[in-house]
């Protein structure tokens, strides 16, 4: 991950497009808008001359661009509100690669994570996703997002507390969920 070579946008796309796509989705981008934002991120990376070796890793460099993209995306989204689709139902209908119950539980967990992430503000959400879920180091995130290291620590600590609080609420809520709404998944 910490490749220090200079990379143009095509190489960045080949190696980091899945990461950027995951990051965008975890930042609240809808599936239907993923392609547009992904192309925007790598187009900006191309115009910036690609990735240059430094304190920031390619992932955090791209994440910084993606954060700006999602900020603009959220502003645009406010002006065209629409109903959020139920991702669990869509995933269930799209077929299962593993055991149906395990898949459902996994989807519920992922949905819980998403709900918990939604309680964070964009700055802390980005830090939490990069450090806790993607496993980036605080130093790399600090360099990539161009914010002081102590600010990273401070925001991360707040984000953890809020996430844990929201996760507890989501887990209790999911435990109270009646699985009878998914009869085919009940063994």
């Amino acid at each position: 991950m910490n490749d220090v070579r200079q990379m143009d946008s095509e190489e960045l796309f080949k190696r980091f497009a899945p990461f950027v796509a995951r990051f965008l989705l975890r930042m609240g981008v809808r599936d239907t808008d993923l392609d547009d934002l992904l192309q925007d991120v790598f187009l900006v990376a191309h115009r910036n001359g690609g990735y240059r070796p430094g304190a920031a890793s390619p992932a955090t460099y791209l994440a910084n661009i993606a954060i700006h993209a999602t900020a603009a995306y959220r502003r645009k989204l406010k002006s065209r509100q629409r109903v959020e689709p139920n991702s669990i139902v869509i995933e269930r209908a799209s077929g299962h690669e593993r055991d149906p119950l395990q898949n459902l539980l996994h989807q519920i967990d992922v949905a819980c994570v998403k709900e918990a992430l939604d309680t964070l503000d964009p700055k802390r959400r980005a830090l939490f996703v990069l450090i806790e879920i993607e496993g980036e180091s605080c130093v790399s995130v600090s360099a990539g997002l161009q914010i002081p290291l102590n600010t990273v620590y401070s925001r991360l600590r707040t984000a953890r507390e809020r996430f844990c609080k929201a996760a507890r609420y989501q887990v209790r809520k999911s435990e109270q969920t009646n699985l009878s709404s998914f009869p085919e998944c009940v063994p």
Binding site: P18, A21, R22, L25, R26, D31, L34, S94, E97, H106, D109, V110, C112, V113, A116, E132, I133, G135, A167, V171
Partner: peptide, 12 residues
């Protein structure tokens, strides 16, 4: 939850 988030499938 963090573990499940890390093991989430790649986006379609």
């Amino acid at each position: 939850l963090i573990r499940q988030a890390r093991s989430a499938k790649e986006p379609r």
